[in-house]
């Protein structure tokens, strides 16, 4: 048994279990912790698939950035000193059926497609190729994404800061 296969199995199990927990755990904060593990498992699979750069990006942006922001939002959007972050149980039957149908449909699709397997994965580092691709064929998209990022950040700052002279935010101060 190759170690790679063992880790693949580990990451896949971790991914499935944590995805279930994200959907079903009654405590939103625990769901966020489960989300951390599903993101970590995806990062691990990127590593297995030879996309090292993406694995690191996944760690640094998702785990170091987005999850921290999510935790902040969860903690700040409730009275944190008494909150247990219980999420009211909604209607589960129809959504679960939809999800089950989706999974079944996808699996049928993949089964019918007769997907091939490979003898071995390509494990050559792709960092340099990635860099060349980003400043070569994808240079324009890269610049565009940078502009979107800037616009998004400015937008977030404008939305999040209290509006002065707005009666609503005056009420917040009291």
């Amino acid at each position: 048994m190759q170690l790679v296969d063992f880790f693949t199995l580990l990451f896949m199990l971790m991914g499935v279990v944590s995805a279930v927990l994200v959907a079903f755990h009654p405590n939103v904060l625990y769901a966020a912790v489960a989300l951390v593990f599903s993101l970590l498992s995806v990062a691990g699979l990127y590593g297995v698939l030879g996309a090292d750069f993406l694995a690191a990006v996944q760690l640094i942006i998702y785990v170091g950035g987005i999850i921290v922001v999510i935790l902040f939002a969860i903690m700040m959007s409730e009275n944190i000193y008494r909150a247990r972050f219980r999420d009211a149980a909604g209607k589960f039957v129809i959504p679960t059926a939809v999800a089950a149908l989706l999974i079944a449909g996808f699996l049928k699709l993949f089964h019918d497609a007769k997907l091939e397997t490979r003898a071995g994965l390509n494990a050559i580092p792709t960092t340099e190729q990635m860099g060349r691709a980003l400043v070569g064929p994808y240079a324009l998209v890269f610049q565009y994404v940078a502009i979107v990022l800037l616009a998004g950040l400015i937008g977030a700052v404008v939305v999040a800061r209290p509006h002065h002279g707005n009666p609503e935010s005056e009420a917040e101060k009291k």
């Binding site: 750069f53 694995a55 690191a56 990006v57 760690l59 640094i60 785990v63 170091g64 999850i67 580092p125």
Partner: peptide, 15 residues
């Protein structure tokens, strides 16, 4: 991806 990976692992600390 050495240095980048080291920085990425460090992001677990804040969590």
């Amino acid at each position: 991806i050495g240095i980048f990976y080291a920085m990425a692992l460090g992001s677990l600390v804040s969590l």
